[in-house]
């Protein structure tokens, strides 16, 4: 194993963290192994399945495809950062629960993060926009209907709350 270590400073879920590691390692490994944030899952590990979806500076990305060296000075949100500090679930998380938008759960953190990114960019998506955006998050249990319903419900709820 070559590649010298350096100190990477990154804000994760609002907390500034310092990690001493090789900047070549995928963000996914650093989140799970070094920071203990195992909510972000490893699925395909080649950017296809969406299980490791995270937000980097608010943008949806695959944690498996970003070397952690790219994160220095940036802001990361993982699924652990979505609920409020007192544990109240976000609109997307609540809607996933109510709609039964998961079964085995492995894809769920990625689905929830991806849906959160969609609603930040497009607060009132059409069902087609939801399917288009979420197509990069694979689920082998639900058949997707309940996931699309949950995202639409979360969008409607967020609009009511803010209205």
């Amino acid at each position: 194993m070559s590649g010298s270590h350096e100190t990477i400073t990154v804000t994760v879920n609002g907390l500034q963290r310092r990690v001493v590691t090789s900047p070549a390692r995928p963000v996914l490994d650093v989140l799970r192994e070094d920071l203990g944030l195992t909510g972000t899952k490893e699925g395909c590990s080649v950017g296809v399945c969406g299980a490791c979806s995270i937000l980097i500076d608010g943008q949806l990305m695959s944690a498996c495809l970003v070397p952690v060296g790219e994160l220095d000075g940036r802001d990361v949100t993982t699924v652990e950062g979505l609920a409020s500090e007192d544990g109240e679930l976000s609109a997307v998380q609540g809607a996933f629960l109510r709609c039964g938008a998961f079964q085995c759960g492995i894809c769920t953190p990625g689905q929830v993060v991806a849906a959160t990114a969609l609603l930040a960019e497009c607060p009132a998506p059409t069902p087609e926009q939801v399917r288009e955006w979420m197509m990069g998050n694979l689920c082998r249990c639900t058949g997707y209907y309940s996931i699309v319903s949950a995202v639409l419900e979360a969008a409607a709820e967020a609009r009511e709350t803010s209205a």
Binding site: A24, S45, V46, G47, S62, C64, E70
Partner: peptide, 26 residues
Amino acid sequence: VLAGGTSLMNMVKLGLAEPEQVIALR
């Protein structure tokens, strides 16, 4: 050279590329 990384990271993971030095352009 590392630009976005979507291809390079996959190639490194799959052993198709084994760069010793990576120049990140971000």
